[in-house]
Design a protein around this nucleic acid. Structure first.
Lengths: 216, 216
DNA sequence: TTGCAGCTCGGGCAAATTTCCCAAGCAGGA
DNA sequence: TCCTGCTTGGGAAATTTGCCCGAGCTGCAA
């Protein structure tokens, strides 16, 4: 599968900051068995680079501008289900982690991790294992024991209310639009938060945006 | 002034992500004339490391959790007015740039810059010059011509609280991070909403995102 | 020097909202 | 049929919001 399978692990680096990519490249290549075969700074380039180089592991920073990193994951996995994607970001919200895994990521590592943990995760993902840093494991464990992606567990009505809410509508406006009582909208609001694991309205808006429900 | 003045430029690296620091260190040290003499992952350590090593340049990422990077700048400059601080961040909002300069920064470079631009800026700052990346210059130039965005009416504290809030932090978390009472954070929250004209929290998040304060 | 303006920080308190708990109607599937 | 899940809302306690206030501080200008 890999062009350098015999000699090490090939890595595609996706991050929108050039100097960050350069730094990662040096850290990874100092390991001996890791080789950065390509870089990309956005979701679209990430996919074409993936096709061109077919790397063993994609190291992907989700906090990119423009298209959501989640879309990049889905794009790559849709065409290459064997792709191994290790998400690497400074965010550590449970909803994001779950969304990344359900989009097809093989691992999730935060930037707070030690470099050695990142390298270890890359090797694990390359072997086909699932990998995550300790803080992520802790957050997931604590968050909830229920599986499923953030939005997949929402019904149609909940999705619609979340969309309008994240779009900036007030509770009264949503109630009027949908011909519901304010109380019902409030209950949905609460339900959506508990289902998705969002602790604040802001997290809800970010979740909706990162899932493509609303655009900013 | 510098302990390695004759042989190069000493740099103190401040960023909260270990692997990012490691990457920067390798990029900078590959230059020959740049030496990373210390690292720090928070504002408090940054100041003690500065005192201990008296570096030529502090390369500071402002998007750190906890105390604002602006405070770190002020802390260092208050005790060592000759300190050269180069702010290095992925944010490119004009208000942030202006705040950094007025807090005493010598330069401002975004992570979108090429590594060579960052290195050039470090050398310029070390010579006592003011430095900023092209995109920042462009943003500042455009900002000075525009009527002003919704964020221009916000004070530094308000900007910081808005950033954390829009990033998904709860009121308690913000209060803890900034060492404020919950009540004060709530008051700021309300003030920000009235100043910006946002009617819901979701609108606030969208505003912050559209101004580049936070990224979704 | 005085004074004003603006930022920062928080108290107070009524009004509103959120957080949970609950029930009931209804659809679809085992 | 029963059971599950969605939709719709009531109720009540807990919390937050909206808006008022004062106090300390800084910088600036008269």
């Amino acid at each position: 599968m890999s062009e350098v399978a015999a000699t090490g692990i090939s890595v595609l680096l996706v991050d929108d900051h050039p100097i960050v990519r350069q730094g990662y490249r040096r850290v990874l290549e100092s390991q001996g068995d890791l080789h950065v075969v390509a870089e990309a700074d956005n979701a679209a380039d990430a996919y074409s680079a993936f096709k061109a180089h077919n790397p063993d592991v994609v190291l992907l920073d989700i906090s990119m501008p423009g298209a959501s990193g989640l879309e990049a994951i889905r794009n790559i996995r849709a065409r290459s289900p064997r792709a191994r994607i290790l998400v690497f970001t400074m965010h550590n919200e449970a909803v994001l982690v779950k969304a990344a895994f359900s989009a097809g990521a093989s691992g999730f590592v935060t930037k707070s991790s030690e470099p050695s943990a990142v390298v270890t995760a890359i090797r694990a993902v390359a072997r086909g294992e699932r990998a995550m840093s300790d803080d992520i494991a802790h957050i997931l464990a604590e968050d909830s024991l229920s599986a499923g992606s953030a939005l997949d567990q929402l019904g149609e009505r909940e999705i619609e209310i979340l969309r309008q809410f994240a779009g900036g509508a007030t509770t009264e406006q949503i109630a009027t639009h949908l011909n519901l009582s304010v109380k019902t909208v409030q209950n949905y609001h609460y339900l959506i938060k508990t289902k998705t694991g969002a602790r604040t309205d802001a997290q809800l808006v970010r979740l909706a945006a990162s899932c493509g429900l609303t655009r900013i």
